[in-house]
Design a protein around this nucleic acid. Structure first.
Lengths: 206, 206
DNA sequence: TGCAAATATCACCGGTGGGTGACATCTCGC
DNA sequence: GCGAGATGTCACCCACCGGTGATATTTGCA
């Protein structure tokens, strides 16, 4: 009796898990370009026919992966800490910084965010929908009973902050810099964090 | 003698121009996914062999397109206006807003910016290099003799602003919204512009 | 006019991808 | 033990892509 179960054994659930894992890997490594039935099957070490039988093709496989993104939110929120903020500035600051860390820590979610604006295939749309739902959840959970100061278009301002952080996280991962700003070392990211805090406080705590 | 030259006539320069134009169109419409020798040749209405003969393959063709991006900067700067700004806040404000308009007006440059973070092929790298050079030129031309206020990490702050604007322009073109903020109508973009101005003034004119 | 070079087209190759039907092998209930 | 269904494998089809050699047609020069 081997501790690691004999791969020759017939176990649908195990095979399904292997396929999903292989698909995740192929996506994260080769990108959407090389993502296909053949590539995933090769990587999973099984026949591509099984992808059709168990997932109904690539679309179903994408949906299975999308489901895993929900866990990204859970993990990220758990890591962000739960102490309730006292002011709207503090809330926003924590939201922005937490989003930056969460995004930087998950290469697959980064890729999805990039594909959303670069490709336009039904497969990407499905993944993007999963990410969007996760993001909404994130926003809702982070939003306490606090209200932004009057006279400010908080949705637009916050969208810009999130947009900036996302773009920097993506460019940092892909190119190591953005518009001349290096995005590699911890010190580089400290500058980004400080800039974000500066902007948030200038808006909401000034 | 037809005014519009007979396409049956053999004219290498005309054919080359048609190929470059077709390549531009294919890139802007179908994205990098559908970009290939066959697609471009089909679109240009000529044989793919000519792409190899005249451009040495896809790489040479990409280089030819990259050259056209330089004109994007010229056109954009011409449209931004030339009156010199009086303060650093004013300079930054104009730079950000001008960048937003220029980026929103050029679908191909948008796509290139998206591919830079989504794909990693030598072809994309060539295009990205062309865009990077154009951007540097933009920055240099816009920068007068003005200096940012002391005590601020202007490079990081400005990179965040540019990043925010770029992400919003890209998401707006691709999805029509970002993080729940609609990015379709002129009014939507007015909100974005107002938010950008607010941030800039909060940073540099406060 | 005649001929060579430039221009454009065609036919084909090997490789790959998505998709499917047929077949082999295992598992489990009867 | 045995048969049916579940699980896994194989072989094949068709379409497309990048790339290339051979060929047809036009142009321009001698």
């Amino acid at each position: 009796m081997p501790r690691t179960p004999d791969p020759k054994i017939r176990d649908r659930s195990r095979t399904e898990a292997a396929i999903v894992l292989a698909a995740r890997d192929v996506l994260a490594e080769s990108g959407f370009q090389g993502f296909g039935v053949n590539a995933v099957a090769r990587r999973a070490g099984c026949d591509k026919q099984l992808i059709y039988r168990y997932f109904g093709g690539l679309e179903g496989l994408i949906d299975a992966i999308g489901g895993e993104i929900a866990t990204w939110v859970e993990d990220s929120l758990a890591a962000t800490g739960q102490a309730p903020p006292a002011t709207y500035a503090e809330l926003t600051e924590r939201l922005i910084l937490g989003f930056l860390e969460a995004l930087r820590a998950n290469a697959l979610v980064q890729k999805i965010a990039a594909w959303e604006i670069a490709e336009s295939s039904p497969l990407v749309a499905r993944l993007a929908a999963a990410r969007g739902a996760a993001l909404s959840r994130w926003m809702a959970l982070m939003r306490g009973g606090l209200a932004p100061p009057d006279g400010l278009d908080a949705p637009a301002l916050n969208a810009m902050l999130i947009a900036a952080v996302q773009q920097l996280a993506l460019s940092g991962a892909a190119a190591g810099s953005f518009a001349g700003l290096p995005l590699k070392t911890d010190e580089d990211w400290d500058r980004v964090r400080a800039a974000a805090v500066r902007i948030v406080r200038g808006l909401y705590a000034g």
